[in-house]
């Protein structure tokens, strides 16, 4: 929990949050015209930002993207669902950051080896699924709006753009000419197993829910899926609090 609130305590991280929010708004607003589902979503190249921002700036990047998304929503798609958008975009940045440092302990995010590129692809996919579960299933459970199409669009927006736009940006930002120093999580010895379990469980649940969505289930209509959603939220709380 201390890590997640860390950006609000330093001037430098607050500045990083502001930069991420500005970049997010600048990229999100012009694409509001490319509507895919009226009032809910559009083609969003801006979704390339959270994964890179999360990997490079950690929690500051995640807060910046969440705030940026909320402000960008004011330009035409602001609704009760914007709260879910805030959480979803926070997660789209924070989960890849946590997963990277769980899988590559002590190594700053980079794409200099094939293994690292594969890890980047996998954590982008995990982040995309988690965001889709939060936004699409959240709309279903809390606001009674279910759309499998929305789930697919959120998933694709959050996976393809980080892959085709985010990865090249990460490569340039971490190349010898720029060497942007990534935020590294503080070394902690307490509860490493629990943190790993929470992370693994959240990714597994997101994957399970995605499979169930394409099986034809919805969270408000299936007890099993609802239970998976509850475990997913609990494990996410574990990822954030532990």
């Amino acid at each position: 929990m201390r890590e997640i609130l860390h950006p609000f305590r330093q001037k430098e991280t607050l500045l990083q949050m502001g930069v991420c929010a500005l970049v997010f708004i600048g990229m999100a607003v012009p694409f509001k015209v490319m509507v895919l589902i009226e009032g809910l979503t559009e083609v969003r190249p801006v979704n390339a930002v959270p994964v890179v921002a999360g990997l490079l700036f950690g929690p500051a990047g995640a807060w910046g993207c969440a705030a940026g998304n909320l402000i960008a929503d004011l330009f035409g798609t602001f609704s009760k669902g914007s709260v879910l958008g805030f959480i979803g975009n926070f997660l789209a940045a924070y989960l890849p950051y946590k997963l990277w440092h769980f899988l590559k302990k002590g190594e700053a995010p980079n794409a200099k080896s094939h293994v690292n590129i594969v890890i980047y692809v996998l954590i982008s996919a995990a982040g995309a699924m988690a965001t889709a579960v939060i936004i699409a299933c959240g709309l279903d459970v809390f606001l009674g709006v279910w759309s499998r199409q929305l789930f697919t669009i959120v998933c694709l927006n959050d996976f393809l753009f980080p892959l085709f736009l985010g990865l090249p940006v990460l490569i340039v930002l971490t190349c010898d000419d720029n060497k942007v120093s990534a935020f590294m999580p503080p070394a902690r010895a307490d509860a490493p197993v629990l943190r790993g379990v929470a992370l693994a469980l959240s990714v597994t649940m997101a994957l399970g829910i995605t499979v169930m969505v394409y099986w034809g289930l919805s969270m408000s209509g299936s007890l099993l899926m609802f239970a998976c959603g509850a475990v997913f939220l609990l494990s996410l709380a574990g990822v954030i609090l532990l």
């Binding site: 794409a111 200099k112 080896s113 094939h114 590129i117 085709f164 736009l165 990865l167 090249p168 490569i171 340039v172 190349c175 010898d176």
Partner: peptide, 16 residues
């Protein structure tokens, strides 16, 4: 920058 990295960037430009 490795060869793979520069190829990824070039492909993203082509996509754009």
């Amino acid at each position: 920058m490795t060869k793979t990295e520069s190829n990824i960037i070039l492909f993203s430009i082509t996509l754009c």
